[in-house]
């Protein structure tokens, strides 16, 4: 309920409400964009652009279309992908899929000082199969459709939905474990 009220006030151009939403989500948006562009500072700039777009297009959000986070998640993905496109990446799709979380996770420990949060990430995806991590990344962070993801990961289209559910369930279990 509190979130709905916050979103409603933000849509009435309440600056305080917008600031609260920013505090709630900006690190998530940064994380999503960073997964795509793989540049910490660029990701910060783009995340700010995303929130400028959110503020300027507050009217266009409608709760019947989905969750507020899903709305801004979509804006973040598009902004990051547009950025890649503008930099003339020749094969965007290949570029998007070439480097998964798995890539970050498999880096040697010496690089961990530069990205301290990989520890948290490692904990979250602990026990998840590589295909699972990749599927979550494609569907949530990179905006792949079920069909695109099934082609990319070479799994039957009909199984994408249930497999994704299982992967998210494992993720949820890991989060629950963190609280213990």
């Amino acid at each position: 309920m509190e979130l709905e009220l916050l979103v409603q006030r933000f849509q009435e151009k309440d600056r305080k409400a917008f600031e609260k939403l920013y505090e709630m989500y900006h690190i998530n948006i940064h994380g999503v964009i960073h997964t795509i562009v793989r540049d910490k500072e660029l990701a910060e700039e783009l995340a700010q652009d995303v929130f400028i777009k959110i503020w300027n297009n507050a009217d266009s959000y409608n709760s019947t279309k989905g969750r507020f986070f899903t709305w801004i998640l979509n804006i973040a993905r598009n902004t990051a992908i547009d950025e890649l496109r503008s930099r003339n990446y020749k094969n965007l799709k290949k570029n998007l899929s070439a480097d998964y979380f798995v890539g970050i996770l498999e880096r040697p420990d010496s690089e961990e000082t530069e990205a301290p949060d990989t520890k948290g990430l490692k904990k979250l995806v602990k026990g998840l199969k590589e295909k699972c991590i990749e599927l979550i990344e494609l569907l949530y962070f990179k905006g792949y459709t079920q069909k695109d993801a099934s082609e990319e990961l070479k799994i039957p289209l009909g199984t994408v939905k249930t497999r994704n559910r299982n992967c998210i369930s494992q993720l949820r279990d890991n989060i629950d474990l963190e609280w213990i």
């Binding site: 910490k40 949060d117 990430l121 949530y140 949820r172």
Partner: peptide, 23 residues
Amino acid sequence: AIEASVLALSKAASPGLSEKSKL
């Protein structure tokens, strides 16, 4: 709950924010 798990994952995917990301 599903959204919370995606939020947790995306938060973990961020390598941290600098002064530039201040309100």
